[in-house]
Structures are given as structure tokens and as C-alpha cells.
Nucleic acid binder design. Structure first.
Lengths: 262, 262
DNA sequence: GCGACATTGTGCACGTGTTCACAAGGGTTA
DNA sequence: TAACCCTTGTGAACACGTGCACAATGTCGC
């Protein structure tokens, strides 16, 4: 996912990527407990709230240091602080949202941004008709100003919410401006140089994964059609050709995804 | 991620979860090639387009069967069909979107839904003031009708795009109505019975992961404050207490995430 | 002060995922 | 037909992630 995932060379402080991905979940569960006035929590309870195994939770937390008390559990407030610090949430991060379509608007209004050290400093779009519009107290600026905006505000995270066709070009521009963290909502695989992290949020991929499992529950993939396991014999070869799209078996959904939403 | 992930008991047809998660990416790359009129592609080329290692690509595809030709590569159209079939995209899946805030609207208008066998059959919300509203050719219906709508349309995938507080209750209701696949945008960990798949899309988690890496690039977590590695001695103990939140070192960002966007 | 108790932190074994490197085997040309 | 080339498919080694089970250890009651 991130292009740096294979740099397990101790400058990562040795925190496994899988652990990093779960820390925000723990953090959210902990802040929930905090609001309810809970002062202390055991690994068992916290693990249940976060939907993970308790041993995994303990191992994850042990990577941050030894912050629990044997026989008692973890002090909620203290753990919130430690995880926040480890994740870098004790400082502010300046975010720019690129692409102000439906999705970009939703993101601009998203409360989760402001509440945890992420400050949206700019909204940018190429469409002249929405440049100048006010959204959530911010004025949409023209994409031509991208480099200026990044430099002026010290943007460190770019959120790309444009149509697929525009994404790579804009990504190149933000990277050229020195941004090294990109959150991509466009349905394309962004190519970036080493040292730049890209994370992808892709609705249709998630749906397709669900469809796969749903199909399995319903009794495996289409009963007709070949599924050679090991036996790629000549029988399979024959059916194979027959099963090809364009031969009358409904392969009519080949249109590329259109990211018309953004 | 999915609650069925540990069912590697051969009824999965032996396709690893990691492979399933990449198939949609390959599919997108392939349809892109198809549009450009490319008939054949090598594992090397396709892997580059999908942003993965070519050996990994070949191993992934080998799980579907032996669909390449040695010395030549893979036939694009045929592979598109096989992956589509394996993912269950050769049939239609009926989707209901629950929660019609900013995000729900963005999802309702998302082109990626319609183009690949996902049909949005209903929009539901609890807010009386938007029930009856027309969005993208669909009328928003009241959440009270949830069970009826699921049964009438044969909904098999529920997309939850509500505030965090409402998500678990609605999830319980859709599961009780027989839905076994849920895509959750609300920032909570949904608890579901075995046999139900939940996938989560969580913006703020992604941002926090980026922040972690960004912080590392900038030289590790806040230089002040303790980070006991192995040596949890008494010095650390002292500083530990001092570094606690509430003792004047800026731990003021404890507010829970507010999913005000939906 | 001390023993019983509860829960953490972790060694270890196992399963999953990734990558290298190469044998297997179609296609193509002479 | 045969030899060569190119790319697939996969064995094997390695890296990573998970979960059990228990020893280590802090707390609390007496």
C-alpha cells in the first residue's frame, strides 16, 4: 500500500505496518471510553471494543513501550496520549483537498478532519464554475494555484478526489511541490517515486471484494463455465474457448469505471 | 477485516484473501488496456500497471487457473472475463445506501456503482426533511421502511453512511433482514455474527496512518517525551508521570471523532 | 509485610503472504 | 520437424503476522 512498506530497517522504530494500521482503531475505542468516564481498561475489554484478539492488542501496544500495569490494565488517558504521539497526532497536519465534486465536498465537510490534528487548508478544482464558491467556510481555488497553495500553507498531505484521468497528473504536481503523503480516492494506481506514501480508498474495490464473498456464500462462482483446478486437460481447453466473451454469454459489462462522482 | 477471513477451509476454493483484494486492481488495469485496444499483455506489463511485483501477479492469476500462454502472455479480454466471473461481477448485486448525508449523496452519484454490476436500489435516511427528496433519479425513503425495502428489492449489500452513533443499530437491522455483506463508512467497529462480511472505509484512519509515516520522515515522534524501548527503568517511570496529559503538555485534542459529514 | 489474584508482556509455533529463480512448455522461424 | 526464444507457472526460502499459553509482575486485601 505505502511505497515504503518494505523499509523495515529499524529507522521505522520497528513498529510493524500492521500494528500502525490498528493504532487508530484503538485510539478511537479509547477516546470513546474516555468520554464515558472510564479510567482504566484491560486488554480484553479494549480488544473487544476494537474487534481484535486481546493477545494481538497487547503485542501491538508493547511495540510502543510498556504502558500497562499487570493485574490492572491500561490507563485510558495515558494510552490515548501515547498512541496519539506515536501516530503524530500531537501536531497539526495541513491538508489540501484536490477535486471538489460530490466526494470532495463530503470530505471538506467531514468532521473527522478537524478533530484530530488534520487541518484542511485549501480546496482546489479545475472547474471554473465552482472556483470561488464557498464550502464549509473555505473558498475553492483554481487548480492552477496548486503549487502556490502548497507552498503558502505548508501542505503536507494531499487528498486527491478528482476523476481518474486527472489524478496522476495532479499527483505528479503535488509530489514535485514536495508533498510526500497522498490519500487517493481516484480509481487509479498512482505511480510515485520512493519516499512518497500513497494510500488508496477505493469504493468499487471494496464492493467487488464483498461480491466475491457473497458469491461464495451463495454457492461458488457461476456454475456454468470452466474452473480448471489442476486438470488443465483438453476438455477444459475446448470449453474455455466457448466460454469466451463475445461468444454470446453476456460479457457486456466491459466499460471502464467512470469516476463520475467526483 | 472480514469476519470470515479465518475460514480457509477449502470451501473458499483456496483463493487467498490477499489475492482477492488485488483482483479488482488487475481488472481495472485490464479494462484500461482493453479500451486502448491492447489484445495481449505480459505479466510484467500488467504488474507494472497494477503497481505490483510480476511474480505476485502470476501467482495470483494462477489461483484462478492457467489462463496465460507461455512465451506470449495473457489475452486481455479473456482475463477480464475470468476475473469478473471469479469476483462475481457477471451477475448484478443490489445495493442499498443507508444515510443520505454528504457522503451518502456522493456515493449515490458514484459512477463506479452502476458500471460493474452494482445496482443502487434504495436510499434511506432518518431525517424527515430529506425523505422524499430526489437524488440521482431515486427517491429517499424513510429508514422505518428499511426491512421492507431490503425484502422487496432483494438487497444483498448494505452501505452504511450514517453518523457513528446510528451505525451499529442499523447494521443489526440489515443483518436481521438477511443481508450478509456490509460496507461501513461510519467510524465505528461494527459487531456482526459469523457469516456476515463487513468491510470498512475509514478516512480518518487512513490519514492517521499517513501522519505516522510523515512524522517518521520528519525525524521520528516528538523528540521530547519518553520512548522506553527495553529499558523501563525508574527514570522512565518518573518522566512518564510528568509526560501525562492534563499536566500541561498540550493533550487537549481528546474529543471523539464526530462524523458530522454524513 | 505477605500471599493470592489478575492481567500484562512475550517466547514460540504456526499460518499466510512475498519474492527469487528456474524448469516447463507454448509459439515461431527456418 | 527441430531448435530457439520468450514468458508462464511454481517450488522453495524467506519475511511477516497471528494466537496460544504461560511466566513475570504489579496490586490489593488481610
Amino acid at each position: 500500500m505505502t511505497s515504503r512498506q518494505n523499509r523495515r530497517d529499524r529507522s521505522d522504530r520497528g513498529i510493524p505496518e500492521a500494528t500502525v494500521a490498528r493504532l487508530p482503531v484503538y485510539l478511537r475505542a479509547l477516546t470513546g471510553l474516555q468520554e464515558r468516564g472510564v479510567a482504566t481498561v484491560s486488554s480484553e475489554e479494549l480488544a473487544a471494543a476494537a474487534g481484535v484478539n486481546s493477545a494481538k492488542l497487547r503485542k501491538d501496544l508493547s511495540h510502543l513501550g510498556s504502558y500497562g500495569t499487570r493485574g490492572v490494565g491500561y490507563e485510558v488517558e495515558y494510552l490515548v496520549y501515547q498512541i496519539s504521539r506515536e501516530l503524530g497526532l500531537t501536531q497539526d497536519w495541513v491538508v489540501a483537498i484536490i477535486g471538489v465534486g460530490n466526494l470532495g465536498r463530503a470530505l471538506a465537510g467531514y468532521g473527522g478532519f478537524a478533530s484530530r490534528g488534520f487541518r484542511v487548508a485549501a480546496l482546489l478544482d479545475a472547474d471554473e464554475s465552482i472556483v470561488g464558491e464557498e464550502i464549509g467556510g473555505m473558498t475553492v481555488r483554481h487548480i492552477d494555484r496548486l503549487e502556490d497553495v502548497i507552498a503558502d500553507h505548508g501542505v503536507s498531505i494531499a487528498v486527491i478526489a478528482t476523476p481518474a484521468a486527472a489524478a496522476q497528473g495532479l499527483c505528479d504536481r503535488v509530489v514535485a511541490s514536495g508533498v510526500t503523503s497522498v490519500l487517493n480516492f481516484a480509481p487509479v494506481v498512482l505511480q510515485v517515486p520512493d519516499g512518497v506514501d500513497v494510500r488508496k480508498v477505493d469504493l468499487s474495490i471494496e464492493l467487488q471484494i464483498l461480491a466475491f464473498h457473497e458469491q461464495r456464500k451463495a454457492g461458488g462462482p457461476d456454475e456454468y463455465g470452466p474452473r480448471p483446478g489442476q486438470d488443465a486437460g483438453h476438455y477444459v481447453e475446448t470449453v474455455r474457448r466457448d466460454a469466451r466473451p463475445g461468444n454470446g454469454n453476456g460479457m457486456t459489462r466491459a466499460a471502464e469505471f467512470t469516476e463520475s462522482a467526483t
